[in-house]
Structure formats: C-alpha cells, structure tokens
C-alpha cells in the first residue's frame, strides 16, 4: 500500500510523461477505436443475419428461434430459461437448495460479488500494476473466470425435459412409488404441464431453478388442502416462494395434482 502522497506524486509524473512523450488521440488511437467499432458492428450484423437466415419464426436455427409461441399464462409447457448471460446467476440456484439457503443464491452471493467488485480499488491501494507482481489479482481473476465459465456452461447444457418424454416415465413412477389409480391422472398432468422444468421427481427433471425434489412430497403429511392452496398461490402458504401460480388449471385438475403429490412417498 502506497501513501496518498506517493500516489499523487506518481500521477503528477504520469501527467508530465504524457505531456512530454505522449501522442495525440487523433489520428492513431482514434483509428484503432474506429476499426474496432466497425468490427463490433459487423459482428452484430453477422449474428442478426445468421439468426434470421437459419431460423424461421418458431423453428429454431443456429442461434435459436426468432420467437416462441405467444405467451399464455394458462399453459404450463414452458421452460423458464433466461438469456444466456444470466445462466451463471440462475445456475447458482441449483447449488443452494430451496428453501433453507436459496436466499444465498438469489441475494447473498450476487450482493457479495457486487460489493467485492465495488471495493476493488479501495482494497488494492498499491501503485504496482505489473501482473507479475500482483499474484492475488491474478488468482482472483482466474477463479472468477473459471467459476463464471463453469456456471454459464452448466446453465447452457442443462437438459430441458420434454413433456412427451416425461409422460413415458409415468408407468415407472406408478411402480416405484406404488401410486394408487386415483393418483394416475395427476401424475400424467404433473409430467406434462411443466412442473419438471423446475422440480425433479424420481430422477427426472430439475431444470434451472433448483426447486425441491417432489418424489417424497406426500410423506411430509401436508394434506390435500395445503397442496391445492399452494398450487393456487405458492407464496400464500410458503412465504417468498418463487413458484408461479397454477390457479388457472381449474379445481378439478388441481385436485388431481394434489392427490398425486400426496400419494408420492419417495419410492420406498
């Protein structure tokens, strides 16, 4: 750590050095900036062209669909997938499990990272800028790049479970969880309406958001009424729950789901 006098002296020297030995911004540096800007615009145009040329509306191309089906709060065949640059944040949620430590993933870790980032110039008050003399900075940046890279990669490659694939698992669920016939309609519903995009059930599903495993939901003894109330408005019985409301399913289907969940005892 250098004293403020030392840092002031060095900045005065910087100003003097630039005055005596520097070169004007125009034309050299400005030329570099202009070339780089043209490259950036070309890349953006290139991506737009590749996107449009290989995709067709809701048919995905090299860079995905141009648009998905219209938003519909009544259907649940959705995958809550954020844009790729949020994967690292989203995937954190799978490390911290609901409900005990999810707050660490949604608020804790991002806040700590942000505070650390803002604190960088106040923690590192040395005047040294050569990388070979800044081992802490090097290790920190390598760790940040690796962890963000791994989280982004994990988020990008997380498998999405298709409703048609999930339905094929229902017979296995009936066998392993010894589901009574009354629970079968609920099981089919559960497999198709998107529950498995967040929750897992006997090894299927999981998605991005690290929602609890529901294989043994019935052994918690919460009861049908609780399950229905929870599906209608998760946050009303489970404060702060990030799960969306499924009230639009209607009473009959909500009841079927609740029966299925209560009959799920964890495959024992």
């Amino acid at each position: 750590m250098s004293s403020i006098e030392e840092r002031r002296r060095l900045f005065a020297k910087y100003k003097e050095d630039v005055k005596t030995r520097g070169k004007p911004f125009f034309p050299n540096a400005m030329f570099h900036d202009t070339v780089m800007s043209l490259v950036v615009v070309s890349i953006i145009i290139g991506l737009a062209i590749i996107w449009h040329e290989t995709a067709n509306g809701t048919t995905a191309g090299l860079l995905g669909k141009e648009y998905d089906a219209k938003a519909d709060s009544g259907t649940f065949s959705f995958v809550p997938r954020p844009d790729w640059y949020f994967y690292f944040l989203f995937y954190l949620l799978r490390i911290f499990k609901w409900p005990d430590s999810v707050i660490l993933g949604t608020v804790g870790v991002p806040t700590i990272c942000l505070v650390l980032l803002l604190a960088v110039p106040f923690v590192d008050k040395r005047t040294e800028r050569r990388l070979s003399r800044r081992p802490v900075a090097i290790v920190a940046s390598i760790l940040v790049v690796i962890s963000m890279g791994v989280l982004t990669w994990k988020g990008a490659t997380a498998t999405e479970s298709l409703a048609s694939e999930n339905v094929k698992k229902v017979p296995t669920w009936i066998k392993r969880n010894k589901l009574p016939p009354a629970a079968v309609p609920g099981a089919n519903l559960f497999a198709q309406i998107g529950c498995l995009n967040c929750h897992s059930y006997l090894g299927t599903g999981g998605g991005y958001s690290g929602a609890p495993d529901l294989s043994a939901e019935g052994s918690k003894g919460k009861g049908i009424a609780f399950q229905i109330a929870h599906l209608k408005n998760p946050a009303s019985v489970n404060a702060g729950s990030p799960m969306p409301s499924f009230a639009t399913l209607g009473d009959q289907r909500l009841h079927q789901l609740a029966v299925f969940l209560e009959a799920s005892k964890g495959g024992k």
Binding site: K65, Y67, D68, A69, K70, A71, D72, S73, T75, S77, F78, V79, P80, R81, P82, D83, L93, V102, I103, T106, V107, C198, S209, A235, G240, S241, P242, M243, P244
Partner: peptide, 19 residues
Amino acid sequence: WDQTAYWATVVGINLNGTG
C-alpha cells in the same frame, strides 16, 4: 411476449421476491 419471455420473467420476478 412469447412463452420463453413470459415464464423466464415470472420466475425472475419471483426470485426477486425471495430477497
């Protein structure tokens, strides 16, 4: 306002709510 947009935002806003 397509399915991806809608449901990612539903969950995104709900996650905000856990703060």
